[in-house]
Simulated scan of single mutants.
Amino acid sequence: MLLTGSNTMLLNSFVVALHQEFDIKDLGFLHYFLVTCTTNGLLLSQSTYALDIIKRAQMEGRKPMNTQISPKYKHLDDVTPFHDPTHYHSLVGALQYLTFTRPDLSFSVNFVLQFMHSPMQGHYQLVNRIIRYVHGTITFGLHMCKQSTLNLYGFSDFDWADIVVRNLMGHTQKRIDRFKDTRRSTSGFCKFLGSNIISWSAKKQASISRSSSEAEYKSMANATVELLWLSYLLHDLGILQNRPPLLLSDNQSALHMVANPVFHARGKHIEIDYHFVRENVQQGQLRTRHLPSKLQMADIFTKPLDKPTYEFIRHKLSLIPQHNLRKGVKNTEIVESPPCKESPAKNKIVQSPPCKERSAENEIINKTTQIKEITRQNANQLICVK
């Protein structure tokens, strides 16, 4: 909660009244400003906090990175125990707080969080790569567009049996055991209200999935719980939905299990999740639909991606850079142009022509400068004659 006002005594009395009613903690003065107004909405950015993380890691002069984790996990080759686990805990904890406005960091930060108990040198190198990525995208923030619909929908995806284990195949068993992989799948989802992302998650599942259909169905069950909770919250706030929320998935087997009540052959061991999702679909509280894998927005929460795919999904999540205008420049406006092949940039800064008053003022200044220069030259000539 942020309190502001011109009367200090009134603010102090209000804080005292809150202490008497609730168990709260006064954090003192404001250190970071999160929200920036734009021409068509709000931009949530933690750029100042991200800069503090970079300084804490002493990586101001390092080369920025375009992605966080390599799809081949090359940074995990070094299994030497890291000499300063406290420093590792500090950096990873700071990155976890940064994910509040940076959903693109969720998967990588969740991954390095799994090794807090015994970090290796390879894990610390991966943390450094994440910080270098933050350094390269330090002006990025989460954009909330004000001209949007209020339709609620979400994307659900999974990574079966953990891609890290599959990438470690061919290495020694000792190296695999060092990373303590449990073969549990990774679930990821994101929820949108119109064009604005409002909820996201990336974490390991609670148990091992014996098939990809089971892993996807568990992910769909978790996403269904979140969607229903958001729909109830919107209803309590007076925001009514014209139709049930929509859940999008790229796994056809899991979608067939929702639609076909007889399709039990590969789903007997996931009966609870199966009946939970199917019951909500039958009651009209949820809709499901298939979408192509290349349009799956939840991929960024479950696995490392190549640069083009990563940047495409990041843009779709409304993560855009903040425009840094020169201090003191006036008559400048930000004009949003529709994306096209000729101009892939989304936003363009257009300098408006100077006004007549400013032109007249500049002309007077120029004439005054010319008169001073002529007077100085005449004075120099008189000195030479004497």
Results as ranks from 00 to 15, higher is better:
R62Y: 13
N280H: 13
L168H: 05
F22D: 00
L228Y: 10
I163F: 06
P292F: 03
H275N: 10
K327E: 15
D177M: 08
V277E: 03
S253V: 06
P81Y: 11
F100N: 15
S212R: 04
L247I: 02
E214D: 04
G267L: 01
N151P: 01
S148K: 10
K204V: 00
N324Q: 10
Q68G: 12
M220W: 02
T139M: 08
I334P: 09
Q147L: 06
Y133E: 05
Q114P: 04
G136P: 03
L27D: 14
G194A: 00
Y49T: 12
Q241T: 09
M65S: 06
H275I: 04
E311G: 03
L255A: 08
Q173R: 10
K204H: 02
G122K: 05
H315W: 00
D306L: 10
T186A: 10
K218P: 03
E60R: 10
L27W: 08
N260E: 05
L295F: 13
H275E: 11
C37V: 09
V127F: 01
D162Q: 06
F312I: 03
K316C: 09
K348V: 14
S201K: 09
V112E: 04
A379N: 15
N378T: 14
P64T: 06
L34S: 11
L255N: 10
D299T: 14
K191H: 09
G284H: 11
N251Y: 12
K180A: 11
F189A: 12
S6V: 07
P308M: 04
P119V: 00
T375E: 12
R266S: 14
N242H: 08
E373S: 02
